[in-house]
Computed example of a mutant assay.
Amino acid sequence: MTALAEAPAAPAAVRRGGGLGRYVLVRFLLIPPTVFLLTTAVFFLMRITGDPITASVGDRLPADELRRRVHEAGYDRNVFAQYADYLGGLARGDFGTTLSDRVRVTSMLTTYGTATLELVAYSMVVALVLGPALGAVAARLRDRGADAALRVFAVLTYATPVFFTGLLLKLVFAARLGWLPVNGRLDTADEIDLDAGGHGGGIYLFDALRLGDAAMAGDVLRHAVLPAVALGLLSTGIFLRVFRANLIGTLGTDYVLAARSRGVGEWRITTRHAARPALIPVLTVIGMQAAYLLGGAVLTETTFEWKGLGYELTQYLQARDYAAVQGIVVVLAVIVAVANFAVDVLAAVIDPRVRY
């Protein structure tokens, strides 16, 4: 009785049944300031070199026409007044108009954003399939030759630039073997058919399935293999190392030892008893890896001419089209913030310890 009386009281959050609601609210409230700070930084960094119109088309316009366009766009006003107008436009969902091709930034983001999300989704599938699978092999063969080789592979996939990996894949599987397409998201004829039918500009795999065209769906996947593998390998090594380390830890826990003493097979122990707890740390790094893959998508899309936001970002940077660049950066920031929020919530639901 004395021991019970002197036992320390449980934390208040535990007595209330957990702090999931508060945890989710705090993580959600972190999204707006994160996006705001990045948007502010991009805006003022872009203005260091002067107004966007002069920077993008100043060398191609007469002086009078240039002054007129700068004045009409309001870029000759105080930079803080421009910033206030820019924030007001963002609050209304108005990202402005691109300076080089005069299209609405929101239209450009809608058209090419789905292509980037499609590529990142394919890449994440590659990383989540290869990483834990190879990590399980490394954990089961700990300190053997295969384990050492896989750990070296993990370091190489993380350290190798994605454009170099992409060029190697193109050289081997496209140029030499001719197994897969070199560039693009779809054969030109199929892409024209999608656009003509009003289905283009979205996630091509869904478009092909909605049309019931199995051949087009296969073509979409064939075009996605090389860029998805090139980009997915960036995160494969991270997932491999995280899963390997945690699987080794769970294989030494009491409940795994108890299952082994009952005669449960090693394969069942690994897949049923040890793999689930070891996957939780993998889930917690998915958000960070999503941001990493979005950054890698810029070089991947350029290497494979995958017409997404990354590819368009390089084109607009070359054209010094700051309005388009700002819009792309804001959207990417929102996607990364939301992805991290979703992963944080998922991890908190799976493992209550994360909430405290």
Rank of each mutant, 00 (worst) to 15 (best):
V343N: 13
D85A: 14
E65L: 05
A224T: 06
A291E: 13
R92I: 03
I328Q: 05
R27A: 03
V103W: 15
L87M: 14
G287N: 08
P352C: 10
Y292W: 07
T106C: 02
L168F: 13
A55I: 05
A121R: 00
A196S: 15
P181N: 07
D351H: 11
L221M: 12
G310D: 06
A348N: 06
R353F: 08
L45D: 10
L90F: 05
S107T: 08
Y112V: 00
G166Y: 04
V354K: 12
P277C: 04
T250E: 15
L283E: 12
A13M: 12
A9H: 10
Y122K: 01
I335T: 11
R27V: 00
A91V: 08
V57D: 12
A91T: 03
D207Q: 15
L299V: 11
L29P: 07
L117N: 13
V242S: 08
V336L: 08
L37S: 10
G89L: 04
D321Q: 09
S123E: 01
G249R: 00
V354C: 08
A146F: 10
R222T: 02
I269L: 14
G184D: 03
I350E: 12
T300Q: 02
S123P: 01
R244T: 06
G197C: 04
D195S: 11
Y322R: 04
G308W: 00
W267C: 03
D219Y: 04
V155A: 14
L167G: 08
N340L: 05
N246I: 10
R176A: 07
L29W: 11
E191S: 15
A290R: 01
P281I: 03
L177P: 05
Y322I: 01
F206N: 05
L332P: 02
V264S: 10
L141H: 15
L169M: 07
L30R: 02
L38Y: 05
M1P: 10
D219M: 06
D59R: 14
I31E: 14
I238H: 12
A81G: 12
A139C: 03
A159T: 14
A342W: 02
A149R: 03
L194Q: 11
G265Q: 01
L294R: 00
R22G: 15
A174E: 13
T303Y: 09
P52Q: 07
A337C: 12
R151H: 10
A10L: 15
F173G: 05
S235R: 06
A347V: 11
G202Y: 07
T253R: 14
A323I: 11
P281Y: 04
V103C: 08
R176Y: 11
G252L: 05
L4A: 08
V256A: 13
L134C: 06
R140F: 01
M288K: 00
G21S: 06
A319N: 15
